[in-house]
C-alpha cells in the first residue's frame, strides 16, 4: 500500500465511516461539488449523493445547530468548519447547546465538528488560529488534535462513533507534508490516550499536533548533544490523559510543555498545575513552556516565523532545563 497523507487519512476515515453506516452524513461550506477548501471531502458527493454531503449557506451556527438536531434522531453528522477559526461564529451553539445537552437533560449529542487549524502557511489572523482551549475549558466536549496520518484516521473514526460531541482539529500544515503507510483493516485510535513518540530519560516534552514534529526534530538535535528527551504526544486535549503525563515526568523529573497555541491560558498552564499537584516531589527543575506569542497570528513570513515555536527554540529551552 502506498503511503497516505494526513489529509487523505481524514478522507479515508470519512469514506469508510459513511460506507459503514448510512447515519453518517456531512455538512459544511463548499464541501460537495467543490470537495472542500482543502479537498478533504473530494469525491464524497459523487459517491454518497446530495442528501449525505450537504453544501450549506455560510452559516456556522446553522451548520452546528442542524447537526445537533440530526443527532437527536440518531444520525451521526460530521460538520466541517472551512477553517477552524470560523468556529468562533458558532461558539454559543457549541458551548451552550451542545456541551450542556447531556448534562442538563440527558440528551447525548454524537456529532463531530472538524476543520483545519494552525499556522505556518501564512494564512494570517483568521485562517491560522488554534482556538482549542476555548473548548477544552468547556465540560461536555471532547477535543482531539492528531499529529500523524495514522492518528488522524483512527481518531476521526473514534470521534464519529463516540456518543459525545467531538471537536476534531486538523493541522493544515501537516495536511500534505506528512505521509505514512496505514493498515488496510479498519482500526481506531482511542480518544483520551496520549502516546510516547520517543522515549528518553533526561526530560519530558509534552506537546501535540504540528509541534510533535518540531519537538521530535529538537529531540534528535538534543540526542546528538547527549540529552535524551522523551516526547509525549497528547493527541486528545479533553479528556486529558493525566496518567501518561505524570508517568513520563516521574521517569524524567523534568517537564517542558510545547504548544502552537498562544501562551496565556494555553494547555501548558493546566499541565503545569496538574504536575505540581500530582508529581511535585518528582520534579528536579522548574516546569518550562515553549509556545506562540500572546498576539494574533501575524501575516508576513518573518513575523509568523517569529510568532511560532520551532525546533531550535524547543531545543534551547530543553538544554536550559536539562542543566538543573
Amino acid at each position: 500500500m502506498p503511503p497516505v497523507t494526513y489529509l487523505d487519512a481524514i478522507r479515508q476515515a470519512l469514506v469508510e465511516e459513511m460506507d459503514r453506516d448510512p447515519a453518517v452524513l456531512l455538512m459544511g461550506e463548499d464541501i460537495g461539488v467543490y470537495g472542500g477548501a482543502f479537498k478533504a471531502t473530494a469525491g464524497l458527493l459523487e459517491r454518497f449523493g446530495w442528501e449525505r454531503v450537504i453544501d450549506t449557506p455560510i452559516s456556522e451556527t446553522a451548520i452546528v445547530g442542524a447537526a445537533v438536531g440530526m443527532s437527536y434522531l440518531g444520525l451521526r453528522p460530521v460538520a466541517e468548519m472551512q477553517f477552524i477559526d470560523f468556529i468562533a461564529c458558532t461558539f454559543n451553539q457549541i458551548t451552550n447547546f451542545v456541551a450542556k445537552s447531556h448534562y442538563r437533560w440527558g440528551a447525548p449529542v454524537p456529532i463531530v465538528i472538524r476543520g483545519p487549524a494552525g499556522g505556518g502557511v501564512h494564512g494570517s489572523a483568521f485562517h491560522s488560529a488554534n482556538p482549542e482551549m476555548y473548548f477544552v475549558h468547556t465540560p461536555g466536549l471532547k477535543v482531539v488534535y492528531p499529529a500523524t496520518a495514522y492518528d488522524a484516521k483512527g481518531l476521526l473514526k473514534s470521534a464519529i462513533r463516540d456518543n459525545n460531541p467531538v471537536l476534531f482539529f486538523e493541522h493544515k500544515f501537516l495536511y500534505r507534508r506528512i505521509k505514512e503507510e496505514l493498515p488496510e483493516k479498519d482500526y481506531t485510535v482511542p480518544i483520551g490516550q496520549a502516546i510516547v513518540r520517543r522515549p528518553g530519560r533526561d526530560l519530558s516534552i509534552v506537546t501535540y499536533a504540528a509541534m510533535v514534529h518540531a519537538s521530535l526534530e529538537a529531540a534528535e538535535q538534543l540526542a546528538r548533544e547527549g540529552i535524551e528527551a522523551e516526547v509525549v504526544d497528547l493527541r486528545t486535549l479533553l479528556p486529558l490523559d493525566r496518567e501518561t503525563i505524570i508517568e513520563s515526568v516521574r521517569r524524567t523529573s523534568k517537564l517542558l510543555v510545547v504548544h502552537e497555541d498562544t501562551r496565556t491560558g494555553g494547555i501548558a498552564g493546566e499541565i503545569a498545575a496538574l504536575v505540581t499537584e500530582s508529581a511535585f516531589e518528582d520534579l528536579d527543575g522548574p516546569i518550562r513552556r515553549v509556545t506562540s506569542l500572546d498576539t494574533p497570528v501575524p501575516f508576513s513570513p518573518p513575523l509568523e516565523e517569529h510568532f511560532l515555536p520551532n525546533a531550535a527554540r524547543i531545543a534551547e529551552a530543553a538544554r536550559d532545563l536539562a542543566r538543573y
Binding site: 446553522a62 445537533v68 438536531g69 437527536y72 451553539q93 447547546f97
Partner: peptide, 15 residues
C-alpha cells in the same frame, strides 16, 4: 438557537 437545531430535526426526519 433552537431554530437551526429544529431545522436539523426536520432534515433528519426527512432523511
Amino acid at each position: 438557537d433552537l431554530i437551526p437545531v429544529m431545522t436539523g430535526v426536520a432534515m433528519a426526519g426527512r432523511y
